[in-house]
Design a protein around this nucleic acid. Structure first.
Length: 281
DNA sequence: AGCCAGGGTCTGC
DNA sequence: GCAGACCATGGC
């Protein structure tokens, strides 16, 4: 991956990457396609317009310094996905998923944002998750320059009541957000400490929050703490495990289970009727 | 109209 | 420990 400054934009060249799949595979809910093949989103307090043309990714109005200090890490461009994919492809089902979804990289999102996002995600669908999160930011996030909003702070939400969160139309999840905010802002659930914990203990810590069960904890760990061995099982992944892995998910893929899971998730959502016979051995 | 959605909690056995 | 009802809301 190499990059150059071209006028206001910073442009990188990268192989085997899909910006669209990365931003629209259900790992982050704050990116929208504002016009064909052009995406707008906010990470941390950094808004961005971004697009991909062939093997080039164009960071609009972005200085190299910001790319190097922030976006390169957020988009996980320094990781060696080809090495991981080489291993995953030893399994025929994973090979199929890699071929279809292998342009995805895991976004290194902030722990608090990922935690809230996947609390909101429970028993919910992706378009509505995006709506709730958008209203969450508009109502409680710090205003940024051009009509954008930062993700709300834990301390801000901790001072709210369930009624205050009614504009989100988050339903029964509102009380879970409040509990998360109270426990995170008080330090009762210590997110920086969780970053350093062994994964089993990290799960237990996250599940101290009401509304955080195994699935939400696993998503928070994968997408908010970059634990790529975390393996969230939702209804889609469960279907895959039932159809293709009745003998168990392959051991050799487990250290990168989160990557595999994301490829599988993206593949099966676009090929919901795939059966065993459709997978080449 | 009714089923489903990146689930979790609570209850009753 | 485990199945089943229930939870708010809206996309399809």
């Amino acid at each position: 991956m190499k990059g150059i400054q071209q006028d206001k934009d910073y442009i990188i060249t990268i192989e085997n990457y899909s910006l669209r799949d990365t931003l629209d595979c259900g790992q982050s809910f704050r990116w929208e396609e504002i016009e064909p093949n052009r995406f707008h989103g906010i990470a941390g307090s950094h808004p961005l317009d971004i697009r991909q043309e062939g093997n080039q990714v164009i960071f609009e109005n972005t200085k190299e310094e910001i790319f190097q200090s922030f976006w390169c890490n957020y988009f996980d461009f320094d990781a060696d996905y080809s090495a991981w994919k080489r291993i995953l492809c030893l399994d025929p089902v994973l090979r199929q998923a890699c071929n279809y979804a292998g342009g995805i990289r895991i976004l290194r999102q902030e722990p608090w944002e990922a935690l809230c996002s996947f609390i909101i995600s429970q028993n919910n669908n992706i378009p509505r998750i995006k709506g709730i999160i958008s209203r969450f930011c508009q109502n409680f996030g710090q205003p940024l320059k051009n009509g954008d909003f930062a993700f709300p702070l834990p301390s801000t939400i901790a001072d709210c009541t369930v009624d205050d969160l009614q504009p989100l139309r988050a339903g029964f999840r509102a009380k879970y957000l409040l509990d998360a905010a109270k426990k995170v802002s008080s330090g009762q659930v210590d997110l920086p400490a969780i970053s350093k914990m062994e994964i089993g203990q990290a799960r237990q810590e996250l599940m101290k929050i009401q509304g955080v069960g195994p699935k939400v904890a696993e998503c928070a760990l994968l997408f908010g703490f970059y634990r790529i061995e975390a393996f969230p099982v939702d209804v889609w992944i469960k279907r895959i495990l039932d159809r293709f892995y009745q003998q168990g998910f392959p051991e050799f893929a487990r250290p990168y289970g989160g990557i595999a899971q994301q490829y599988l998730f993206h593949y099966i959502r676009h090929h919901p009727d795939t059966e065993k016979d459709d997978i080449a051995q």
